[in-house]
Amino acid sequence: MTESTKRAVSNPPGPAVLGLLAESPMHPHAMASALRERGMDRVFKVTTGSLYDVVRALERAEWIEVRETVRVGARPERTVYQHTGLGRAEFVRWVDELVRVPADEYPKFLSAVTYLGALDPDHAVSALRERAGRVRASLEEIRRGHREALEDAGVPRLFVVEVEYAVRMLEAELGWLAEITADIEAGRLPWPEAATGRAGDR
């Protein structure tokens, strides 16, 4: 594996770009529009600039190549990219690996929950309830975007199944937040005496 290939593989939006090019040749502006339409901007930051960085890395790795340069009306010229033979093979290998092998992820929330006992019980309940409200709002927004993609834009379900996964993850988090909050309020979750004492001092 060359150094350029390693750089391409390490870029998180890479599979999304390669996936779009597996459907049809495309320029980065169209990629950005398609990713937003499918709700992928909730998975990673989608900007034309960041996609150009991904495209350059994939081109250096020889996974994609320039197909043509086009101009529509008075707009600037845009470069259309397509898979190379190597790119198609590596894309399939990459997706297979990502699906099969769980990756270690380190979300900030998990780090914070590890030290939930640093808060007093009332403060913890308040924080958890606020988070639940924000998660619920995000969940409704994602569901709405998913419906619009399927019904209004006519995007095939297979192309937005990652949104369904995101919905299930948020639903699971809401369930856990409700459960842990109820346990704290009912006194079923033992709490450090220091944090409990701070609550009484206020």
Results as ranks from 00 to 15, higher is better:
Y52I: 05
M26H: 03
E90L: 11
F44P: 00
R129K: 12
R38Y: 02
L98P: 02
V46H: 03
V92R: 14
R67T: 01
G87M: 07
E68T: 12
K45W: 00
L51R: 02
G39V: 08
P28E: 04
L21D: 04
I64L: 09
R67Q: 13
V66T: 11
R42G: 08
G145Q: 12
L98V: 07
E65R: 14
R42A: 08
D120I: 05
G133H: 06
K45A: 12
E37Q: 15
S50A: 12
V92T: 11
V72N: 03
D53A: 14
G133Y: 09
R129N: 13
L139R: 10
G85H: 07
R144I: 01
A34C: 06
D122L: 15
A32R: 10
L119M: 14
R75D: 03
R36M: 10
L116E: 03
E68S: 14
E59T: 12
D122C: 07
P25N: 03
A32L: 07
L58N: 10
E140H: 13
A127D: 05
R71C: 04
R67Y: 01
R88V: 09
R60C: 01
V43T: 06
K45F: 06
R131C: 00
H83K: 04
A34W: 03
G145L: 10
A89Q: 12
V66C: 01
E90W: 09
V80Y: 03
R136V: 00
L119F: 14
E77L: 05
F91D: 09
P102A: 05
E68G: 00
E148L: 08
L86Q: 09
D122G: 13
V55H: 04
E148K: 11
R129S: 07
T47S: 15
E105L: 12
E23S: 03
R67E: 14
R88E: 13
H123I: 05
R143G: 02
E37T: 13
M31S: 10
V43H: 05
W94Y: 15
A61D: 06
T69W: 01
R129L: 12
H27V: 01
E37N: 11
V92S: 08
V70L: 14
V125L: 09
A32T: 04
R129Y: 01
Y81R: 05
V99N: 10
F91P: 02
L150D: 01
F91R: 12
R144L: 11
A124R: 10
I64S: 06
R131G: 00
R144A: 13
G85A: 13
L150P: 08
S138Q: 11
V99A: 12
V72G: 00
M26D: 01
V72K: 09
G49C: 02
F44I: 02
L20Q: 10
D122A: 15
A137H: 08
S126G: 03
E77Q: 14
M31C: 10
V95R: 14
G133V: 06
A127W: 06
V72T: 10
R136S: 15
L51W: 04
A112K: 09
D120F: 14
G73S: 05
E90I: 04
